[in-house]
Structures are given as C-alpha cells and as structure tokens.
C-alpha cells in the first residue's frame, strides 16, 4: 500500500469554503450582468421580430442562475459543516 502524499495545503476545507463565499458574493453581479444584457436590444427596430428569442434568452439565463445558486448553496452548506465557522472571523469585519 503506497503511503499517501502529505497535503499541499493546510486547512484545505476552510480555504475552499472561503472561495465558495467569494463565489456567493460574485453571483449577484453575474445575475445583474445576465439580466442587463437586454438593455442592448432594440426589439422595435429589428427587421425580423425577435421578441420570442429575447423571451427564451431571459428564461434560459434565469434557469442557469437558479442552478448556480442551488449548487452554490449546497456547497456552502457542506463546506460550512466541514470547516465549522472557520471563515466567520475572517469575513465578519467590514
């Protein structure tokens, strides 16, 4: 049985958790970006009507966002259970 390598990072769990928290902070920015793209559209000026495409885009973006939030909340919960409040002191300060 080969000896397992020593881990490269200490406190892997709390590191992971902190990055998950970063992701949770970025998510609303991603959401705003996705939802503000329609600002570039000009539905009344396009020669071919493309409102239906816009409709499909918005709902597709919505679904992507929901899935991302779902995955992120699961990961955060799991990481939170593993790393038990380790990151809390780091992110409590403003």
């Amino acid at each position: 049985m080969p000896a397992s390598k020593p881990p490269k990072f200490l406190a892997r769990n709390s590191y992971r958790r902190r990055r998950m928290i970063d992701a949770a902070r970025v998510l609303p920015l991603v959401a705003s970006f996705l939802f503000f793209i329609p600002v570039l559209w000009r539905p009344s000026e396009t020669p071919e009507p493309d409102t239906a495409r816009g409709w499909i885009y918005i709902f597709a973006a919505w679904v992507v966002l929901i899935v991302a939030a779902l995955v992120l909340s699961r990961l955060l919960e799991r990481a939170g259970r593993g790393a038990d409040e380790v990151a809390d002191d780091a992110e409590g300060a403003p």
């Binding site: 503000f36 539905p43 009344s44 239906a52």
Partner: peptide, 25 residues
C-alpha cells in the same frame, strides 16, 4: 406556435427603454 404568435403580435415591437429596464429592476 406560441413563438410564431409572439413574433406576429404587436408585442414584438415593444419599446425597450434601457433606463427604464435597469431602473425597474
């Protein structure tokens, strides 16, 4: 059929005002 109807309806030419879009959000 719904997609066709959307594109054929008066809604297809809805006036998108960027400021209003962002403001309402």
């Amino acid at each position: 059929d719904v997609i066709d109807r959307v594109n054929a309806s008066p809604i297809a030419d809805w006036p998108l005002k960027p400021a209003r879009w962002m403001g309402l959000t």
